[in-house]
């Protein structure tokens, strides 16, 4: 990943997945991913269909100015949203610029959207350090730099 950011949020609607008394038929997160996909489309991004990644959650790619961006919605406790700009090369920093712009626009949209609450943003370092875990209050209600 060229860049990544993490959001922890709580939706005010149900997204419990489906269970057949034996195993998951559908993991939680598809509805949340669908709503986020709509928000991004409303912001002008070209969005592809949401796809299941099993216990990891639901994911989809979207594009801005030809740059691929990516989102995954996982149901861990509340919902964990992972945002990234896939790839290894960004010689002129274009991907990072597009990604940063998307984060700013999405943060504004989520803050204004009544369907989501308790929104906390984390960096990858915070995630890797386990600072997003239960009881942690280190997350910010706006995207970190």
């Amino acid at each position: 990943m060229i860049a990544s950011k993490f959001i922890y949020l709580v939706p005010n609607f149900d997204d419990e997945g489906e269970w057949d008394d034996h195993d998951w038929i559908e993991y939680p997160g598809r509805i949340v991913a669908g709503v986020l996909s709509e928000i991004l489309q409303g912001l002008g991004y070209k969005v592809e269909a949401v796809d299941s990644e099993g216990p990891k959650g639901w994911e989809f790619s979207f594009w801005d100015q030809g740059v691929q961006l990516w989102m995954r919605v996982g149901a861990i406790e509340d919902f964990l949203i992972v945002l990234g700009a896939p790839g290894w090369l960004d010689i002129f920093g274009r991907k990072k610029k597009v990604f940063t712009r998307m984060i700013e626009r999405l943060a504004a949209a989520l803050a204004a959207d009544a369907r989501f609450g308790n929104i906390r943003w984390y960096t990858k370092q915070q995630m890797d350090a386990g600072e997003w875990e239960e009881g942690s209050m280190s997350g910010r209600d706006e995207p970190p730099a």
Partner: peptide
């Protein structure tokens, strides 16, 4: 890219 997952029938903080 894998951090964890849900536990059947439980939602909310501390559920997964």
């Amino acid at each position: 890219g894998f951090y964890g997952g849900p536990v059947r029938g439980r939602r909310g903080k501390g559920s997964g």
